[in-house]
Amino acid sequence: MLLTGKARKFAQEDDINTDYIISGRYKFKIQDPNELATHVMEDLDPGFFQRRQDGDFVVAGQNFGCGSSREQAPQAIKYAKISAVIAKSFARIFYRNAFNIGLPLIECDTDQIKDGDELAVDLSQGLVINKTQNKRISIKPLPPVMLTLLSDGGLVEHIKKHKGFALK
């Protein structure tokens, strides 16, 4: 699977929490994920939704997605047509939520990516290609459980298909 798009970085790189990804103000009110997506990253970077383009990547530092367990966070990113989040590391609950709903997360050294860089991500080869800087960055391989969930199309499809858990 090859994904291409522009890198979107924020002034704050580390510890971007789920309140910033989608504020509690909206997640309790809005049930339509497409509408929720219009508020993605709003408290951290007002106007982000208007600026981003389909297929872009959210790029961050350490501990992306820390804070609450709201699944609306990866959902808002996915419905904003962000193709993947690339970060140095992810918080645990966010990590599971993203794979459960089919939003790919990529762990790699994001110091080699600047805001606006053109990226191509090759998940099967485990590579991020920074076209702007002409660099190849290797991705931390995905655990087999995550690969199974992604290939089944998320947790709902996994449970439906196997009538329960069929991992390992």
Binding site: S69, R70, E71, P74, I93, R96, N97, N100, I101, V145, G154, L155, V156, I159, G164, F165, L167
Partner: peptide, 16 residues
């Protein structure tokens, strides 16, 4: 955990 993980718990009594 997230909602879908809890849904899986509710449906199966299990999770990974």
């Amino acid at each position: 955990m997230g909602s879908t993980d809890v849904a899986a718990c509710a449906a199966t009594g299990q999770n990974w």
